[in-house]
């Protein structure tokens, strides 16, 4: 038997990439008017900003379009299951006081969900801007404000796990730092009063006051003072398994090291704060070590 030989002397001719086609942006009814602003074309869903119920209420429409690459039966099954799971968990989180956007409406068969608008920016962007500042010498690496954000992230993830929910896709793009309450405006005029403060801000104040160890500095207010809001629960699961919780943290850790290599030490702060956030968090951290090790064993075979 002769070895499968290829032609000798063969320059590598690069393959011409096919011309990219325009992506599809068509929502199902009733979301067909021009009052839509594309926010992201995520892997899972198309996310738009629009208004809902009143022309003054901003909201997010999340549409899971049919994936042409997926078998239609599988696609329908996945879309419905995931959308419903997402909505159920969000409502549960709101009931339990975990920082997530509220559910305003949804249609599982047609693949859309309307969610509360969160004013703020992603932790990913916060980290990017911080990295720029460090590079320019405006900030130093162990910056207290930044550590404060990390502490809040750890606490938010801990709260989520505490109520038996694992996010499933915990990346820095799925963590929002809400714009501090003094500058947010509620859309409904019913709630537009002077000197108004959100419940979440009060909760934060109450919590800080309760443990007394970390009094929040009263002034001046920084843009990093807002609450952490967890978004995109597209791959969420309801579970209290240490394994699932640890994998959540592992995914976040890898998102950190993959996109913010310089910010890896900050992740330690998240873990510390997570460890103090609920009973059982310490066991999860121990499990995380196992998950890391196993992750490294995975490349055993070629």
């Amino acid at each position: 038997m002769a070895p499968s030989a290829d032609i000798a002397i063969e320059p590598i001719a690069p393959i011409e990439p096919p011309a990219p086609l325009a992506p599809l942006h068509a929502l199902p009814p009733p979301f067909t008017d021009s009052n839509l602003e594309v926010l992201t074309q995520g892997a899972e869903a198309l996310v738009y900003k629009t208004t809902f119920l009143t022309p003054a209420t901003p909201c997010v429409v999340k549409y899971r379009p049919p994936k042409p690459y997926r078998h239609p039966t599988l696609d329908k099954r996945l879309t419905k299951t995931r959308l419903l799971a997402e909505a159920r968990v969000l409502v549960r989180c709101r009931k339990e006081g975990v920082g997530v956007p509220g559910v305003l409406a949804g249609d599982w068969d047609n693949g859309w969900l309307v969610l509360e608008w969160i004013e703020g920016m992603t932790v990913r962007k916060v980290l990017d801007e911080w990295a720029d500042k460090v590079k320019r010498g405006d900030k130093k690496e162990g910056d207290d404000e930044m550590l404060g954000v990390m502490r809040k992230v750890g606490r938010a993830v801990g709260r989520l796990h505490d109520i038996g929910v694992c996010h499933g896709d915990l990346t820095t793009s799925n963590l929002m730092l809400r714009q501090p309450s003094s500058s947010t405006e509620h859309a409904s005029p019913l709630f537009q009063h002077r000197g108004h403060q959100t419940v979440s801000a009060m909760r934060e104040a109450a919590m800080d006051g309760a443990d007394g160890s970390e009094p929040s500095p009263p002034q001046p207010q920084s843009e990093l003072d807002g609450d952490i809001i967890l978004i995109d629960f597209g791959l969420v699961s309801q579970t209290i398994q240490d394994e699932d919780r640890a994998v959540d943290l592992y995914v976040l850790e890898r998102a950190f090291s993959a996109t913010h290599p310089a910010a890896e030490p900050l992740f330690q702060k998240i873990l510390t704060s997570y460890g103090e956030s609920f009973k059982g968090a310490k066991t999860v951290l121990r499990r995380l070590e196992d998950v890391r090790l196993r992750g490294r064993k995975r490349s055993m075979l070629g």
């Binding site: 070895p3 290829d6 000798a8 063969e10 590598i12 070629g302």
Partner: peptide, 26 residues
């Protein structure tokens, strides 16, 4: 794994594409 492959490649210069001189596998 279960394939043994032997190949010779030439990198002519930095701005030219590499050339496969031979590529055998069993």
């Amino acid at each position: 794994a279960n394939k043994i492959g032997i190949g010779l490649i030439s990198h002519p210069s930095s701005n030219k594409p590499p050339i496969v001189l031979s590529n055998l596998r069993h």
